[in-house]
C-alpha cells in the first residue's frame, strides 16, 4: 500500500499533441506513455485493484469517452494496474502489431448496443396447475403441455428478435450477441458501426421498437469497441 502504481484506461495512436485535462480515478490527472506510434492513457494510483462499484466503473468509462471524442481508442478492461511505466511500455512493445491491427479495425467506428427484455410471466398458469396436484397424472401431463407451449413461445419471441437483429447486423460491420434468458433479458447484442451510420442504426432500432411494442428494447452507445478488441495472447495462437 502507498506504492505508486499506474492505472491504464486505453491505448491509441500517438496523435494528440494538446495537453489532456482529464481526471481519472481518485482525481488523478490522466497522462500519456508513448511507445513509437502508440500511446497508453494512464493515471497514478496507490491501489493494486479498484473496486468494481458504480462510481469507479463510470470513472473508467468517462475517461475513455472523453478521449473517444478526439481519437480512436482500444479500451482496457477495468482495473488494469501496472507497477511501473516500464512494464506498460513493454506491453505496448510486445503487442505492438496486434494493437495497431485492432486500431485499424475499429478506426472511425463505434460500438452500439441493444438489450431486449421480455417479461415471461407464467405465475397465473403455475397457480392454475397447482390445483391439479391432487391428480398426479393429470398434473404431470398438464406440466408437460405447459413446458412445450412455453418453449414454443420463447422460440417465437427469439425468432422475431433474430430477424430484427439481422437488420441491425446488416448496417454494422461486425456484431456479437448472447441470449441470456435471465431476469427477462432475452437478447443482448453489440454492434460495431461506422460512426457515420449511427443515425441509420438508431432509426432501425426505433423501427424495431415500433414493430415489437411488447418487448422492451434498450439502446445504448456510442461505446468504445469493448466487444471487438481481438487480442491473441502469446502461447495461445494454436489453442
Amino acid at each position: 500500500m502507498g506504492d505508486n502504481n499506474y492505472y491504464v484506461y486505453c491505448i491509441s495512436y500517438n496523435t494528440i499533441d494538446d495537453e489532456i485535462q482529464i481526471m481519472g480515478h481518485r482525481d488523478q490527472l490522466v497522462f500519456r506513455l508513448v511507445y513509437q506510434e502508440l500511446t497508453a492513457y494512464v493515471s497514478n494510483i496507490t491501489l493494486t485493484y479498484v473496486e468494481a462499484n458504480y462510481e469507479n466503473l463510470q470513472c473508467h468509462e468517462n475517461v475513455i469517452s472523453q478521449l473517444m471524442k478526439k481519437i480512436d481508442v482500444l479500451p482496457m478492461s477495468f482495473s488494469t494496474i501496472y507497477k511501473s511505466k516500464e512494464s506498460i511500455i513493454l506491453t505496448l512493445q510486445k503487442y505492438y502489431d496486434q494493437f495497431i491491427r485492432n486500431l485499424e479495425d475499429i478506426a472511425g467506428k463505434v460500438e452500439l448496443g441493444i438489450k431486449v427484455f421480455y417479461k415471461l410471466d407464467f405465475d397465473e398458469e403455475d397457480k392454475e396447475d397447482k390445483e391439479l396436484l391432487i391428480k398426479p397424472k393429470e398434473y404431470m401431463l398438464k406440466r408437460y403441455e405447459r413446458y412445450r407451449s412455453r418453449q414454443k413461445k420463447v422460440d417465437d419471441i427469439l425468432y422475431g428478435i433474430e430477424e430484427q437483429h439481422q437488420v441491425l447486423a446488416d448496417i454494422a460491420v461486425n456484431n456479437c450477441f448472447k441470449k441470456p434468458m435471465k431476469n427477462n433479458l432475452i437478447f443482448n447484442a453489440s454492434y460495431l458501426v461506422i460512426a457515420d451510420k449511427e443515425k441509420e442504426f438508431e432509426t432501425a432500432v426505433n423501427e424495431m421498437k415500433k414493430n415489437y411494442p411488447s418487448y422492451k428494447i434498450i439502446y445504448s452507445g456510442p461505446w468504445p469497441a469493448y466487444h471487438f478488441v481481438n487480442l491473441v495472447r502469446e502461447g495461445e495462437e494454436n489453442e
Partner: peptide, 29 residues
Amino acid sequence: DLLDRLLDKGIVIHGDLMISIADIDLIYV
C-alpha cells in the same frame, strides 16, 4: 451495460502473460 463491457471485455491483460516478458511480477490484474 458497464458491467457487461468493462469487466472482461476490451484489452484484457493477465498477470500470467506478463511473466513471459520478464521474470518479475509486473502487473496487478
